[in-house]
């Protein structure tokens, strides 16, 4: 058999491969543009040594805050070996931005069963925005090794139905974990 036929068959296969990869990329690019999707990528620096003293991540500012436009911002700190605060209420079906940073080592979290996922790298503020459609408690484990206590580092994200979503006069909302 002549070598040209082999090369031709390989080229036909390259065409199939290119079509398959292109199809995937088209789906990714189309949905990314249509929904303005992007992974948490805000490249915002913060001094891990002083974040508890002043600024956005002091204790009084942590937790859930309803904004004037009805969206919600959740601020928390990931530290060895806990999330502060440990219970995070969010409203069902509304855009929620989670802003998180670390004063010590690398952490991360996923809210189980959702697309809420980020690394938490000391020196940077991670921010992600998503919506939660399933009311109830969702476990939120630390998903990056941060020391021997890592496995016990969990928070709970509580998705609250709209009718039960009653923030205080300052737009603040808190929740308690039942032991």
């Amino acid at each position: 058999m002549d070598e040209k036929r082999i090369v031709r068959s390989e080229l036909r296969w390259v065409f199939v491969v290119a079509a398959a990869v292109t199809l995937m990329l088209v789906v990714i690019v189309a949905t990314t543009l249509a929904n303005a999707l992007h992974p948490p990528s805000n490249v915002e620096t913060i001094d891990p040594a002083t974040l508890h003293i002043a600024g956005e991540f002091t204790e009084a500012n942590l937790g859930t805050q309803e904004n004037a436009d009805g969206t919600v911002t959740v601020r928390l700190i990931a530290t060895q070996y806990a999330f502060v605060p440990r219970c995070l209420p969010v409203p069902e079906g509304r855009p929620v931005s989670i802003r998180v940073t670390s004063p010590d080592v690398i952490h991360g979290f996923i809210v189980a069963g959702t697309n809420a996922n980020t690394m938490v790298v000391p020196g940077f503020v991670a921010e992600l925005t998503t919506e939660f459609d399933e009311p109830g408690d969702h476990l939120m484990p630390c998903h990056e090794y941060c020391g021997l206590g890592h496995s016990n580092m969990w928070a709970v994200l509580r998705v609250v139905p709209e009718e039960e979503w009653i923030p205080d006069a300052n737009g603040r909302m808190t929740c308690e974990l039942v032991p």
């Binding site: 995937m24 990329l25 992974p39 790298v121 940077f124 921010e127």
Partner: peptide, 28 residues
């Protein structure tokens, strides 16, 4: 590093496109 806060979405997107190309030699 897609989930990392220290990089912008531009380079993440670029390297996603390049990652798609690394499937080619395996498919060949």
């Amino acid at each position: 590093l897609f989930m990392d806060p220290e990089h912008g979405s531009g380079f993440k997107f670029l390297q996603m496109m390049l990652t798609a190309l690394v499937t080619v030699p395996t498919l060949l």
